[in-house]
């Protein structure tokens, strides 16, 4: 065992990179679920975002344009889900699963000519002399702009949900769509917008994997991150800052597991590998005791006449 092999600064800095795709995908899904819609298509929207972002970044040479395209791609795909569930009143679980399967297949089709291509590199943010500060510099100030955008987004979502009228309306729709409807709020319009927001966030999260974390395009490369994001929303009991905490926990555990192995620590890696899920289950058990955590109308279909 040689723990000194682990460089704590690089290790902690790795948390941010590992957690960013999760943060984006989960914060989008959190907003969607707070309006009472359960979209299980996160994985599909992420992978579509991954390929859209990758393709546009390669064609234009600009990673930022790529992230923009990823957001649009994810949002467009989520419109399909919005159409199915809000207009056709289809079952949300089935529609979400269909979205994931469709996204995985369609992205493979789109990405055929991009296998083995290298994307343009995203520059890290330049904090000037601040980045020279020992420890703090390399840990917090050595990342690309998307990492910071993710953190800002979480703060924004928290503030909007908590302090603004829009947030209140959004939560009202999620808690009781019939009451919100009776008060004159456009339930379907609000939900559709939320679904598109969720799609855009998932798209950016996916593009972060294909453009920065890996960086390359491979079929099925999101490899289940979307499902972890769904678990993360539940883990966070629909609260933005807990979600942030959870994302570092989930992302950090993967890093920790690999780092410990590299350093030759003999604890069975299976324990660390399964720990995010064990933690989620434990949280679920606690949540089930206080029934208030989940939005009241989550997963229920809204029809104005009923």
């Amino acid at each position: 065992m040689d723990l000194s092999a682990i460089n704590p600064i690089l290790f902690v800095a790795g948390f941010f990179v590992a957690a960013t795709p999760l943060i984006f995908a989960a914060i989008g899904e959190l907003v969607v679920e707070r309006t009472g819609v359960l979209n299980l298509g996160v994985e599909g929207m992420m992978i579509i975002g991954a390929i859209c972002g990758f393709a546009v970044a390669v064609e234009t040479g600009s990673p930022l344009l790529g992230f923009g395209a990823a957001a649009i791609g994810g949002a467009v795909l989520s419109l399909l889900f919005a159409f199915l569930t809000q207009v056709m009143l289809a079952n949300q679980v089935a529609s979400g699963l269909a979205l994931t399967l469709f996204g995985l297949g369609f992205s493979a089709l789109l990405g055929q000519s991009y296998v083995g291509v290298k994307p343009p590199r995203m520059a890290d943010m330049n904090f000037g002399p601040l980045a020279e500060i020992p420890v703090i510099g390399p840990v917090f100030l050595s990342h690309d702009i998307i990492v910071y955008l993710g953190l800002a987004l979480v703060a924004c979502v928290w503030a909007v949900l908590k302090f603004t009228r829009a947030g209140l309306v959004l939560r009202a729709v999620g808690e009781n769509h019939d009451a919100a409807h009776a008060l004159g709020f456009k339930v379907k319009r609000i939900r559709t917008l939320a679904i598109m927001f969720g799609g855009a966030c998932a798209g950016v999260g996916g593009a972060y994997i294909s453009l920065i974390r890996v960086p390359q395009w491979t079929e099925g490369m999101t490899a289940g991150v979307g499902w972890i994001a769904l678990a993360l929303v539940v883990f966070a009991s629909w609260k933005p800052f807990r979600l942030l905490l959870g994302a570092y926990l989930f992302g950090g555990l993967v890093q920790l597991q690999l780092n410990l192995q590299g350093a030759g620590v003999a604890i069975p890696v299976e324990y660390l590998a399964m720990s995010p899920y064990v933690i989620t289950i434990v949280v679920l058990v606690f949540l089930s005791r206080s029934k208030s955590a989940a939005p009241g109308s989550l997963g229920r279909i809204f029809h104005a006449s009923s």
Binding site: I6, V214, L258
Partner: peptide, 26 residues
Amino acid sequence: FKIVWAYTWFDPAKEADAAKVLIEQG
């Protein structure tokens, strides 16, 4: 040799992380 087990045949993000960890460790 530093050996890291990924417990997957195919997971690009995890494989990339594993490679990064190994490189960080020298």
